[in-house]
Design a protein around this nucleic acid. Structure first.
Lengths: 319, 319
DNA sequence: CTGAAAGCGCTTACAG
DNA sequence: CTGAAAGCGCTTACAG
C-alpha cells in the first residue's frame, strides 16, 4: 500500500500552525521570531509524520534547485579525482546542496543533464569548449570554469619525480606521455614541469607517448639513445614502461629506472614495485565547494587562495 | 545580463495559443487532436525562443521527477559496470529519464540523494540491507532490488578461467579472492563457480584472499602445497599474484600459471602479460533500463529473460 | 509573533 | 479542435 507522502500542510495541521510557520521553522528562516514552544511542536510533528520537503516544489518556489552538476572528464575517474569529488560532495551536502556527476559528451543523448535537472551551477572538471559553455549558460545554469593556470601551478608531482631521478645521478631522462584521450591537458602540464626541472639541471630530456602497442619499441629507442630514467605520466604509464623494459631484457632499475605518479594500487602490484608520487588533495574539495556555493548564491567568488598541495615521493624498487 | 528563461506562457503567447496546447504539442500527449499548422507554429516558436521545459515544475504537476537514482557499489566502478551504466543511461535518456549515480553510504551526509532529488526509482547495483531499503521506500521512491540469483547465474567468467587451466593440464588450482571491501558478494559467486568446475573434474581446489601485504606469503604456501594454477577474482588480483610469484623467483607460467578476469588495461601492462576473460555486457544496460522504466510507470516488471552474457578467453603469456 | 494569500511553471480533466 | 481553470507543494512578502 502506497500512502501519500506527508506535506507541509499535514505538518501544519498536526502542529496547529500555518504552513508558513512550518516553512520558517524547518528552514530556520532568519528574521522570523518563532516561540520556542511552537518551534518544538513543529519539529516534533514533522519527525513524527516522517515529513521530507518536496525538493521540486521548493525549487519551483525559490527558483533554485540546490543541485550542482559536475561534468566529469572523459577518462576514467581515478583515485585522486574521486577523493576530491567525495570531499566536495560532502561539503556541498552540509550546505544543503546535492552534487551530481555526469559525463558531458555522452553521444546520442536527447536531453543533457543540465536541462533535465536544472542545476544551479555546472562545474566542468576539465575545460570545455566555448560552444558547449554557451549552451550551458543559455540553459540558465551558472558555469564555473576550472582555473587552469592555477591547476598547473599546483601540479608539483613532476618536480618530485624528476628531481628524484636527478638525485640518483641520471643524466638523460625521458617523459612517458599517456595516450588515454582526454588526459592531454594534464599530461602536457606534467611534461612541461618535468622538462623545466631537467632544463634547470642541464640534463638531456626527451618525451614520447607510450601505450601497449608502442611501449616496447619506444623503450628500446630510449635506452639506445642513452636514456636511463623515465618519468611517467602516471602509474599506469609507468607500469607500461616497466613491462616493456622487462620484456626488452632490461634490469629495472639498474638499466632503466621508472617512476610513476599517483601512488595507485598498481604501484605495489608490479615486480619490481613502482616508485611513485603521492599527492594529498585534502582540502581542495572544500575549496571548490566554497566557490560553487558562492556561484549558486550569486555572490562574488571568494578570493582566498586554494590550499597548498602537498606531495611526497614514495620510493619503491623501480628507481 | 541574465534574462528570464522563457516559459510555456511565452511560447503560447508567441504562437497565439493557450498553454495547454503548448503542453500537448511539446509532450505529444496522446488523445489530443492538434491541427498540423498549430503544431508546427508551436514547435517553431518554442525553438525560436529557446524554450526548455522546467523539470521541477513538471515534476510538481505530475508527481514524477523522471530521475532514476543508481546506488553504486562501494568499490571503485570498474570497466564492465561503467559500460553497463552508460548503456542504461542512454536507454533511459531515450525514454525521457535521467540516470544519476551516487555512493549510498557516504558518511556524514545530512540528506541522502533519494530525499534531495526525489527520484522515481532507486536501483541499487549491489544488494542493500533491509533497514536502508525501508528508508528508501518510505521516501516514496520505487526500489528495484538487483536479482542476485540471476546475476550469479550469468557469471560465466569463472567457468572459462577454470576450464582453461584444466585444459592446460593443471591438477591443483587455487582461487585468489580480493580483499577490496564491497566486492565480497561477487567474489564469493565467482569462487563458487570456479570451485564447482574444479569439483566436476575432481581437481584439487583451494582458496584464499590476496592483497599486497599477503600475496607473497600466500603464493609461497600455494606452490609448496602443489598448486600450479591460480584463478584470480579479477585482473588486479591476478597482477598481485603474478607480482608475488615473480618476487618468489617463480617462472610464470611454467612454475605457476595465473589467469585474471575482466580483460582490463592492466592485463597488457604486466610482463608476462595476463591471460584473462573478456565479458560482453552489451544489452544488459537496456534490459535493466526496461525494468526501471516499468517500475517508474508503475507497470508490472517485464517477464523477458535478460540477454545472454557472452564471454571469451583472452589468452596471453601468464598461462 | 502568526497566518492568509499570491505565485513559481507546469499538466490535465473539463467545458465549450 | 482549443482554452480557462484548478492544482501540484512549496516560499515569502505582507497584513494584522
Amino acid at each position: 500500500m502506497v500512502t501519500r507522502r506527508p506535506t507541509s500542510t499535514d505538518v501544519a495541521r498536526a502542529a496547529g500552525v500555518s504552513r508558513a510557520t512550518v516553512s520558517y521553522v524547518l528552514n530556520e528562516t532568519p528574521g522570523q521570531t518563532i516561540s520556542a514552544s511552537v518551534r518544538q511542536r513543529v519539529l516534533e510533528e514533522a519527525a513524527r509524520v516522517g515529513y521530507v520537503r518536496n525538493p521540486q516544489a521548493r525549487a519551483l518556489a525559490t527558483g533554485q534547485s540546490h543541485i550542482i552538476l559536475a561534468l566529469l572528464p572523459e577518462w576514467p575517474v581515478e583515485y585522486l579525482l574521486r577523493e576530491l569529488l567525495d570531499e566536495m560532495s560532502l561539503a556541498l551536502d552540509e550546505a544543503g546542496y546535492s552534487l551530481v556527476t555526469a559525463k558531458p559528451y555522452a553521444s546520442g543523448r536527447t536531453a543533457p543533464l543540465w536541462e533535465s535537472l536544472r542545476p544551479d551551477v555546472v562545474v566542468p572538471i576539465e575545460p570545455i569548449d566555448d560552444r558547449r559553455a554557451e549552451t550551458i549558460r543559455r540553459s540558465g545554469a551558472q558555469l564555473l570554469m576550472p582555473d587552469n593556470a592555477q591547476r598547473a601551478a599546483f601540479d608539483i608531482g613532476p618536480e618530485l619525480q624528476t628531481t628524484h631521478l636527478l638525485d640518483l645521478g641520471h643524466t638523460a631522462i625521458a617523459y612517458a606521455s599517456t595516450t588515454v584521450r582526454g588526459m592531454d591537458a594534464m599530461d602536457a602540464d606534467r611534461m612541461r614541469r618535468s622538462q623545466e626541472v631537467a632544463a634547470l639541471a642541464s640534463i638531456s630530456f626527451t618525451t614520447a607517448p607510450v601505450d601497449h602497442t608502442t611501449a616496447q619499441e619506444q623503450v628500446n629507442a630510449w635506452t639506445r639513445s642513452g636514456v636511463s630514467g623515465v618519468v611517467a605520466f602516471n602509474d599506469d604509464t609507468a607500469a607500461q614502461v616497466l613491462g616493456a623494459a622487462l620484456r626488452n631484457g632490461l634490469r629495472v632499475p639498474d638499466d632503466l629506472a621508472v617512476i610513476g605518479h599517483d601512488d595507485s594500487p598498481i604501484a605495489t602490484m608490479t615486480f619490481p614495485s613502482l616508485s611513485s608520487v603521492r599527492v594529498d588533495v585534502s582540502g581542495r574539495g572544500r575549496y571548490f565547494a566554497e566557490r560553487v556555493l558562492a556561484a549558486a548564491r550569486n555572490e562574488p567568488l571568494p578570493k582566498e587562495a586554494p590550499p597548498g598541495v602537498r606531495a611526497h615521493l614514495v620510493r619503491r624498487e623501480s628507481t
